[in-house]
Amino acid sequence: MALEIRGLRVSYNIEGRGIEVVRGLDLDINKGECVGLVGESGCGKSTVGLAITRLIPERKGSITAGNILLGDKDVLTLGPDGLRDVRRSKVSYVFQDPFSSLNPVFTVYDQLKEALPDKRNADEIISGTLESVGLSGIIGNKKIYPHELSGGMQQRVMIAMAIMPNPGLLILDEPTTALDVTVQNQILDLVARLKDEMKLSVLFISHDLRTVFRISDRVFVMYAGKIVEKGLKQNISLKPGHPYTVGLMDSMPSFERRKQKFNAIEGRAPLFSELPKGCKFYPRCKFRVDDCALREPGMEIVSGEDHVSRCIRIKEIALDGISKS
């Protein structure tokens, strides 16, 4: 297994209080697999991504419980040297905004070189990597600056920097959100190809179901700091197992369902400081019954061991997925 997270809890200091925003989260990624983590803004996705290499700023918050296993090591027990090694060569990140992730005052070449743990044969490795991310056009051009590249090309540079150390795990946090659809797809295709060629394990974080379904092997749906559904991509898209997932699907606008009223999920996500007691989706759920409010549901089987959902009514209610694609 490339990554296994068990019972992860993270709190932030908000207005002088510690507020838990990741509330006992389990997630695992097999070697060479792409796992999508999807959920609405503020549900805690990025926090999970950051926790994996303990990048949550100390003053802002802390990991309070859980295990994060990378290979045979628990990241949460590592000392400074072990942690540095993990950050430098085992886990790489690509963030949403290529414009602010690249330093405008240094050349692209210098920043690529900086990202290499071992500078021997730097030119050769950089050329090879640029080639594989589809940037052969700038190979050998050591004078080019980030602003001279388009958003899509900048994101390719970020991906090049991320894969150069040959990491076991690549974490992409909303990597295409700032890009146009056609460019988005090129980047997704690139990630999919690199994943296969380099046998990369990938954690793909996004609020966008379309991109998550396009690239992931398995999907984890997150709501209010916890996983509420997980399963193979094709199982979830055809037969979703949680009312929240269905709500997200119904909110996706498309020509096929034109001029119908969107089946929008009513209300909005609860504040972490005022979470309801039982099922956290209860206030917004069309299928709720009184029992749902008693205690937070555990994971129930939807179809086979691998497709589970945190909903007590999953056996009684009929949910529809997206029939096309």
Partner: peptide
């Protein structure tokens, strides 16, 4: 906007 909020706003505009 997030998908669920997006759907609420599109409903409103329509």
């Amino acid at each position: 906007l997030d998908l669920s909020v997006q759907a609420q706003i599109l409903n409103l505009l329509t």
